[in-house]
């Protein structure tokens, strides 16, 4: 049987438009690499200065001088390029990255994202998250619906320091696919066997259920 995370990742692959440029944040999004079909027409941007990075290279082709931002010894696709960190972030701030899939500690129904700091507990730094979140035209958050204690990570208002405001387009969790709209969070897909009431029960944010909701 497929795990919840596995089905989340398989669902996330469908977000990628052919011919687009994509950035995958550390955590769940980088795991997505393993699920991408090898003939996918996409260029993956890595903040450390790679456009066209791909899955882990075969052993004999691995280079100690080539990693992605998550530290994996990646291969590159045909048509890839290397550049310095200023160029890499110029690409981000000029919105040349079409889609960023990113992890989150918390999100809220206004599309705000908190993923860089849990005061007093965990603050390893900002990395590239703030610029990616603020400047990528489409941000899709990949995360578990609830934390390890079972508390909702989808809130009415973020409580943690916010990485970027009103930046999220879509949230994909192990339970549902939701779009951030001016009206609020619209549930487009729900995991099989779960009712809208049950989903609202485990979600702090107020949910709006689309008329034509499919199963995840």
């Amino acid at each position: 049987m497929m795990s919840d995370i596995e089905s989340l990742l398989k669902r996330a692959v469908k977000e990628i438009q052919p011919g687009s440029i994509l950035n995958l944040g550390i955590g769940l999004p980088t795991q997505l690499l393993n699920y991408l079909p090898d003939d996918l027409d996409v260029l993956i941007h890595s903040e450390n200065g790679v456009l066209g990075s791909w899955k882990q290279a075969p052993r004999e082709q691995m280079s100690a001088s080539l990693i992605d931002a998550a530290g994996a010894y990646v291969s590159t696709v045909e048509g890839s390029s290397f550049f310095d960190s200023a160029v890499s972030f110029a690409m981000i701030r000029r919105s040349k990255i079409d889609l960023t899939m990113i992890g989150a500690f918390e999100v809220d129904q206004q599309g705000n994202l908190a993923n860089w700091k849990i005061p007093g507990k965990f603050s390893p730094g900002i990395g590239g998250a703030m610029e990616l979140a603020q400047k990528t035209p489409r941000i899709v958050v990949l995360m578990t619906h609830c934390d390890k204690q079972g508390r909702s990570k989808i809130l009415q208002q973020c409580r943690l320091p916010v990485t970027a405001y009103h930046c999220i387009s879509r949230i994909i969790t192990d339970k549902a696919v939701m779009d951030v709209t001016p009206e609020g969070l619209i549930v487009r897909e729900i995991t099989e066997g779960m009712t809208p009431d049950q989903l609202q029960e485990i979600t702090e944010a107020r949910l709006i259920f689309a008329e034509e909701m499919c199963s995840l």
Binding site: E47, A86, F89, G127, E131
Partner: peptide, 15 residues
Amino acid sequence: VVEFHPQGMLAEKIR
């Protein structure tokens, strides 16, 4: 003492 910057801001400050 650690001073954190967004990655592209650190790069641009240096550039």
